[in-house]
């Protein structure tokens, strides 16, 4: 064998050995990494921040669907069943959970610690039939994370659940949680500072999703049921004008930027539109923190104005 052939063969063998070792370590790593399924993006973000590389966090909801109203098929539920941990938001979020068969021992209700502070939603019709008597389908406000102190409590329950799952990384989870908590409490402080102006200016929300935020930051807020990309019909505009007369808000919060013609018509009524994205699903750009920072900046600008 020539010397050059020997060197080529040596390098080939070296590369093969290296590839095998790399593959083996990847497989070994994939085996030990637990899978954590979540029902919305805030929980995904918190879990990723706390777990780091020690868990694979999966949000199986398509990006263009609101996770609160997502309806998984049996195959998707089956994937949840096989997860090592399932993080729920609680407060009635993701109603499909109550209609699915999930392993109880893997479920973690991240808002259970403050379930006594849930806000009941209004407007649920009651009905009666059969022998059960009258009952209501009124629900619970579920965007719990928009009160950032509650978000920190949810993150804490994620830290505890992950620590139970892989106790060997407990210290790392605790350190990651402290960093996340600090960021969340910073958001809380900034939003509290903005809303500390008294008397609180009235605000109209395009959707009833800001209840916890309004309570925590003492916002004077009323909600309608408008979609940012659908022009409200005449009856809805009429109701809005009546509401605006009783409740002279000059700011309207939207989950996403409203269509220009809606924003223009609102401006003519003296109502400025601003986006406060609850970030229930993965954002197109940025992450939970950058979206919330942007939300607060928009709000700050509008409040100052």
């Amino acid at each position: 064998m020539k010397r050059s052939s020997f060197i080529v063969l040596f390098y080939c063998l070296f590369l093969l050995l290296f590839s095998l070792l790399y593959f083996w370590s990847s497989v070994a790593d994939a085996k030990v990494r637990p899978t954590v399924y979540v029902v919305n993006y805030p929980l995904m973000y918190f879990a990723q921040r706390i777990a780091g590389d020690h868990a694979q966090v999966v949000l199986p909801v398509p990006e263009d669907v609101d996770p609160a109203f997502w309806k998984p098929d049996a195959a998707a539920v089956e994937r949840f069943q096989h997860a090592d941990l399932i993080l729920l938001n609680g407060a009635g979020y993701a109603k499909w959970v109550s209609r699915a068969s999930l392993p109880r021992r893997k479920l973690v209700d991240t808002s259970a610690a403050f379930h006594d502070r849930y806000i009941a939603t209004e407007g649920g019709a009651t009905h009666s039939h059969g022998r059960e008597g009258e009952h209501s389908h009124a629900g619970t406000a579920f965007t719990t994370w928009l009160d950032f102190t509650q978000a920190a409590e949810q993150a804490k329950s994620i830290r505890d659940a992950l620590s139970r799952l892989t106790p060997e990384h407990k210290d790392e989870f605790a350190a990651n949680y402290r960093a996340l908590e600090s960021d969340l409490l910073d958001l809380d402080a900034r939003l509290s500072a903005i809303s500390s102006r008294r008397p609180a200016p009235p605000i109209i929300a395009s959707h009833p999703v800001y209840q916890y935020m309004a309570r925590r930051y003492a916002l004077d807020l009323k909600s309608v049921m408008w979609e940012p990309d659908a022009m409200p019909n005449d009856a809805e505009w009429k109701n809005f004008v009546e509401l605006h007369q009783r409740y002279p808000a000059d700011l309207m919060l939207w989950e996403a930027a409203p269509a220009p013609d809606i924003a223009e018509r609102l401006r003519k009524l003296g109502v400025q539109s601003t986006v406060f994205n609850p970030c229930g699903n993965r954002p197109e750009n940025g992450d939970f923190m950058s979206i919330m920072n942007a939300n607060i900046e928009y709000l700050q600008r509008n409040f100052a104005h």
């Binding site: 109603k95 209609r99 407007g123 649920g124 019709a125 009905h127």
Partner: peptide
């Protein structure tokens, strides 16, 4: 007001399908 009283004619679903699963609810 916000209350509706139904008669015995109200049919409760006897099979759960993709179309009606969302209507299933807990009492109490």
């Amino acid at each position: 007001g916000a209350n509706v009283v139904a008669s015995a004619k109200l049919v409760e679903y006897t099979e759960i399908t993709e179309a009606n699963i969302d209507s299933f609810h807990f009492h109490g």
